[in-house]
Design a protein around this nucleic acid. Sequence first.
DNA 1: CCGGAAATGTTATTATTTTCACAGGGGGGT
DNA 2: ACCCCCCTGTGAAAATAATAACATTTCCGG
Lengths: 208, 208
Amino acid sequence: MQKIPEATIGRLSVYSRYVGSLEKKGILTVSSAEIAEGVNGSPAQVRKDLAYFGEFGTRGVGYNVESLNQQIIKILGLSIRWNVVIIGAGNLGSALTQYKGFQNRGFNTLAVFDNDVNKVGLKISGVPIYPIDRLEEFVKKENIQIGIVAVPFQYAQEVVDRLVKAGIKAVLNFAPCVISVPSQVEIRNVDLTVNLEILTFNMGANKF
Amino acid sequence: MQKIPEATIGRLSVYSRYVGSLEKKGILTVSSAEIAEGVNGSPAQVRKDLAYFGEFGTRGVGYNVESLNQQIIKILGLSIRWNVVIIGAGNLGSALTQYKGFQNRGFNTLAVFDNDVNKVGLKISGVPIYPIDRLEEFVKKENIQIGIVAVPFQYAQEVVDRLVKAGIKAVLNFAPCVISVPSQVEIRNVDLTVNLEILTFNMGANKF
DNA sequence: CCGGAAATGTTATTATTTTCACAGGGGGGT
DNA sequence: ACCCCCCTGTGAAAATAATAACATTTCCGG
């Protein structure tokens, strides 16, 4: 039980997507060098990343595409389905609700919550929009593990606090702000501005 | 001219946002410990990150809020405005177009492109939607430096190739796939599924 | 059945990033 | 003017991560 770099986990997710695409093409075997090429990585890193979790390949041969993908999916915790709610039915919340990629990877979006009474009662790709007051009740009753926060930053901490109180296990936050959660709750931030600003820094970064 | 960790740049962006909020509150001085608290970081790291670029503080006192923020903004390359196009006028593209945070940080979204003739001619928060055929022409003529790609993954590489040919400097890609660009073009991927899967890994990760 | 090519798993090395500790400069009170 | 507290900047140490190198295993052809 050693510590695994978070970057490794991110890469495993990418490997899984790539290996999945090979599986669909009917390819049976793949080498670390081929995976590396498919994901813009290095063969050594692919092998190292996988080696944290066991021996999945055959020396001299490579990896069985199907079983490798199953193993990675298991490692990532995707062999069970996860119940998700999205808070915020604006454009971003709607985009996330409609996004097929989540379904495919085992995430069930069961509801969207919003404080706009005009939106309540509508559906987004079949997912109902509920009033924000019902958030805690729903999270508890439906055993929701993951909350995706797509509200304006002013409301984000409050929404997260309510999710935490209702027993959420993990939060994916899109609001551009720092959120505090107790240590047993997992949180990740997807910060659009930060990403853009890393780009602008790199574009100008010959001076340093 | 030493190498600066990318994580440092990401944190500078967050510092800037935090320090900007202090500025709005009329706070004049801030210490590294206070910044650290505001962004869930450590004081030493705040100081180290800033020290890559110079000495911005006063020993025994702290940092002047206003000038610190100006310095960070300059470091991040945000003292000039950047011209941006968004490709894809779906929910995600619309959300990005409407997002105020970009404007505030110096990003001008000049156009959205889509291949849906029903959307062409409409506007999103005042930003016009143009047909995708006009992409290259527009990028060249309007001197667009940054392209934000919010199209289905099947089209992403093609769109990026076209942006690159038209002379784009940087790409922010939201499509869940690996994109190849020549080395002089900056690219960053915002991969929603990867972020969710890091969460699920962490939720189950007592076994490793 | 043997030898060579191929590709993994693993150890060692190198590079990078974070954390720690403290010297140095600055301001305010007495 | 001096002392003491405060907080930065920085060099050294520790921790973490990436890369390289290689020993080992497998397959295949002759």
